[in-house]
């Protein structure tokens, strides 16, 4: 079972998408305990994209595709903004230190690495594609 969603580059699209993702997961038989991590990782990635990747004033869209198979769930996010490889371009999240020294930067990518089983990022000809896999769901 698979479904694709096209969203505008505005933060208010994220809660709307989260509802659609939850509905898809329910129909596709994805366990409800997987829905929060899936929506969290999508939210963090989309928030990054929408905040940083589209600063040329042109109109852009982002496509999110979910595919559920027996071996797990595959999430693909395709955009035409500035490339940013979460595996190589992101600073390591700082997970220790006291209140004074702690920073929040990098937590979104840390969630992605912690909650997903596979991460792949490709960028070619102005199109960027993030593929995440979670198994079993």
């Amino acid at each position: 079972m698979q479904r694709a969603f096209r969203i505008q580059t505005e933060l208010r699209e994220i809660p709307r998408l989260a509802e659609q993702v939850e509905a898809f997961c329910e129909e596709a038989g994805v366990s409800m305990s997987s829905v929060y991590p899936i929506n969290l990782v999508l939210d963090e990635w989309l928030t990054n994209l929408i905040t940083y990747a589209f600063d040329d004033g042109a109109e852009h869209t982002i496509e999110v595709e979910l595919r559920k198979a027996d071996d797990g769930l595959t999430i693909t996010v395709t955009d035409d903004g500035q490339a940013f490889n979460p595996l190589t371009d992101a600073p390591e999240a700082q997970l220790d230190g006291d209140i004074d020294s702690r920073q929040v930067g990098g937590l979104g990518i840390h969630f992605m690495k912690t909650l997903m089983d596979e991460i792949d990022y490709r960028s070619a000809d102005g199109v960027n594609c993030l593929t995440l896999r979670k198994q079993p769901v």
Binding site: A18, Y36, N39, L40, D43, E44, T47, V104, L107, G108, F111
Partner: peptide, 8 residues
């Protein structure tokens, strides 16, 4: 629901 924005 909370994301890293809420944790910040």
């Amino acid at each position: 629901y909370i994301s890293s924005a809420g944790l910040r």
